[in-house]
Simulated scan of single mutants.
Amino acid sequence: MNDLDDFRAALRQPPGEPFAEPDLARIMADGTRLRRRRRLLTGTAGIAAAAAVVLVVVLAIQLRQPVSAPVAQPPSPAPAVSTTSAAPPAEQPIGDVIGTGIRTQSGELVFYARAVDAPELPDIRFGLVAGFRSGTSLQSVLATNEVRGSDRSFGFHATDGGEVIRDQLIPVFGYFAGPAAKITTTVHGQTVEAHLAKWTADPKVVIFWFDPAAVPDSAVLTPLVAYDTDGKRLTR
């Protein structure tokens, strides 16, 4: 018998111990774990490869992107220089300024005439202003003028005042066109005479005002009455 015959005879002999049946459940579980491990390794490798590709692309873009040239900034604007325009000239009185002797913190209370230029009032060329005079400066406070007919038609015109402006009671004032030598009113039954001053630009115009203590406002006035030098009543 040769070696081949001995090998064949050994294969035909039964084993000393019977083989156990294969554990199919364990074999399948081991195979599943092996497949999962392969999938995990494959996924990790894919992610690593993708990250490497992205990194290479980013680096390539950065290398190819030209360096941005510095942008020229606009020159800074020159600092604004504050300029002060000359104050407008003070209102030029027509004729002399009339002092009242009433002293206030803003100066002496005065009256003066001013020019009026309104297309809707073709026959009104002047009006009156109550204001304060301090030294050579004038500060207007209240202006009034006729609004109907002519500014020099016979009679009383532009009566105003009797109100507090800038903490100062402005006297009731106005003017009379005509030869008035005396102007009166009645307050609470008492006759009150006005102060008078002829307008130097036209002596036929007489500017008048009442003492604020005697005539505090125009509401207490009765109709004004003008008299000539002979005491003759000029108005009804």
Rank of each mutant, 00 (worst) to 15 (best):
S137V: 10
S134I: 08
P122D: 08
R125Q: 10
Q168S: 10
A130P: 03
P122L: 11
L142C: 00
V141E: 03
S153R: 06
F156K: 05
V116L: 09
F154P: 12
S140E: 12
G155H: 06
R166Q: 15
D117F: 07
P119W: 14
F132Q: 04
G161Y: 04
E163Q: 13
L138D: 00
S150H: 09
V116C: 04
H157N: 09
T144V: 15
R125G: 09
A143K: 14
D151A: 10
Y112N: 06
L169P: 13
L109F: 00
D160A: 14
F154E: 09
F132G: 01
L109P: 03
A118F: 04
L121V: 00
L109Y: 04
N145V: 02
P171W: 01
P171K: 08
G162P: 02
A115S: 13
Q139D: 11
V141Q: 07
V164L: 11
L109Q: 08
A118K: 13
S140T: 10
L128P: 06
D151G: 01
T136R: 11
V141Y: 04
Q139R: 15
S153G: 14
G127E: 06
R125N: 12
L142S: 07
G127K: 08
E146L: 09
V110N: 07
D123S: 15
Q139C: 02
L109C: 05
G135A: 14
F156R: 08
F156S: 06
Q168T: 15
S137H: 10
G161M: 07
L128G: 07
L121K: 01
A143L: 10
